[in-house]
Write a protein that binds this DNA or RNA. Structure first.
Lengths: 303, 303
DNA sequence: TTGTATGCGTTATCAG
DNA sequence: CTGATAACGCATACAA
């Protein structure tokens, strides 16, 4: 890039290069320079729109800074996660954004090179200096408080794998806040919600709490008819089109835009070798209720 | 892999390797062997659950065959697509699954090496020998017939970018089938549906047709109150939790599992150098209606 | 300013 | 069967 080459020569070389269709081999270049201008994002479930949206935002932000993003999916499988974690640095990435399944710093460090820039997304790990998370207690308490305010006491709880910190913590706080009539655990997928709901027939909890959006979608899918006194559905992160639903729904929602942006803001300095910007960011959630919920809460007139 | 090394030696070497934490540099390996055991999937919008689910299924299938998947997002941006298309082969991939924005074989061939195994997903390109698509005419006609059967005549049409073949063809067939009261075009995102619906206030089309799921979600989000005679919402691919919606909805749905599986089935032989398995697969769609739609169609009693 | 040789980490090839 | 050496395509450092 230095001014060693005359403009004329530079021009001629470029012409020849495009004419011959020359494409530099980035493998060789990365091997030599130890730089790939590529960041990897490893998420636990790309079929979850929560991660889809985040991925899209992160890609956009990184692109503005000259990095391309490769997205990988561990599909909630710890072995798959470890596999990709080992594979990706070997294939040459400059940095990594990870929504981890694993819980310990030790397990993480066993897979990846010590100096690989990394930022954790959605799920922090004790000792890892760079992470972006929504305060899990605030997130869960907000949901419970909103439910408590409409006199919910007895709930059914359907939660994702308890080896995943977010699902575990969310479930814990719900259990502390309410009388648990029934409890189900399964993959954080619609099918878990569907299956659990079918086992609840005849029961009448005040609310059904799901530890993520997909589980809640499964429950809502399984509700055949909206009876006169449907249970409240409570979950985390926005349920699409919830406003029209004839079922009361409350969701404690993370700020997806802030999560994505903060990730990139943390990772970019690391890529430049500056570790001083590292921090464990805690974002706050806000609760969203749909019209059916608001009507149930204030049957006479809105307060 | 040959039996040149004795089992004992092999064992000792492996022990030493793991003890020293040796990780082969896959960049160097790929540079030397011209093989990366990696397939790229380039989609137009990873925030769309349609592609999220497909990506998840493809990843799973490829993994069983020893390939890892890197996912990239062109975000409906043609320049971004071209950028990734040039970048990915330079970074060493063995094959590519592409949901293209571009329309011509020529444009595609200008970006990628001539011999790169490639299978097109969702959107075919004339002349490209391997693709997996849902028959666009059957897909659209199915939707129109279902609407026609409940006496829909006048519709509002909200469609995605007309430079994308699927959106264009879907819109064309809808325009041939009904009287179009209003027509809107925008990115295939919820925001387009929301904005368009707000411009429809006071109008009463029999149905609002959206050329994809996300646009329909935007419309449904914008509907504040379900009036007594809500328009039918018609779209392509499954709308989550549509059964409970108090709005009549019909969706012409592609078989996501078959799309993903067929992609992999097409690509794997190519990776082995066998081009004879190439074909342009056309899948068929099926229509799904929700309860509100069925009630409206058969107000007295179900037939 | 230009050319040339060496190394990145691996696999493949060819003598030994 | 083993061990040394070249080559993959590029960037860098150094000599011309």
């Amino acid at each position: 890039m230095a001014r060693r080459i005359s403009a004329a020569t530079r021009q001629r070389v470029h012409e020849a290069a495009t004419k011959l269709g020359y494409r530099p081999n980035l493998l060789a270049r990365s091997l030599r320079t130890r730089k790939s201008n590529t960041v990897a994002l490893l998420v636990s479930d790309i079929a979850n729109p929560f991660f889809g949206k985040i991925a899209s935002l992160i890609e956009h932000a990184l692109h503005r800074h000259g990095y391309s993003l490769v997205l990988c999916n561990s599909a909630e499988d710890q072995d798959r996660e470890i596999e990709y974690l080992r594979l990706l640095p070997q294939k040459g990435i400059d940095g990594l954004i990870l929504a981890p399944l694993m819980k310990t710093k030790k397990t993480l460090e066993e897979q990846i090179p010590a100096n690989l820039p990394i930022t954790l997304l959605d799920r922090p790990i004790a000792g890892v200096p760079s992470s972006v998370t929504t305060d899990p207690d605030q997130l869960s308490n907000l949901l419970c408080e909103t439910l408590g305010r409409v006199l919910v006491r007895k709930v059914a709880l359907i939660h994702g794998p308890s080896h995943i910190s977010t699902h575990k913590r969310r479930a814990e706080i719900v259990e502390q806040s309410f009388t648990i009539l029934h409890k189900f655990e399964g993959p954080a997928q619609p099918e878990t919600g569907r299956a659990a709901f079918l086992k609840l027939v005849g029961q009448h909890p005040d609310a059904i709490v799901c530890t993520n959006q997909l589980i809640a979608q499964g429950v809502l899918d399984a509700i055949q008819e909206a009876d006169l006194n449907p249970p409240i559905i409570a979950c985390f992160d926005e349920v699409p089109m919830m406003h029209l639903m004839p079922i009361p729904i409350v969701a404690s929602c993370q700020d997806i835009g802030a999560l994505a942006e903060s990730c990139v803001t943390q990772l970019l300095p690391q890529l430049g070798g500056d570790l001083t910007k590292n921090q464990n960011v805690l974002l706050t959630a806000k609760a969203i209720t749909n019209r059916a919920f608001q009507k149930q809460a204030f049957p006479a007139k809105p307060m």
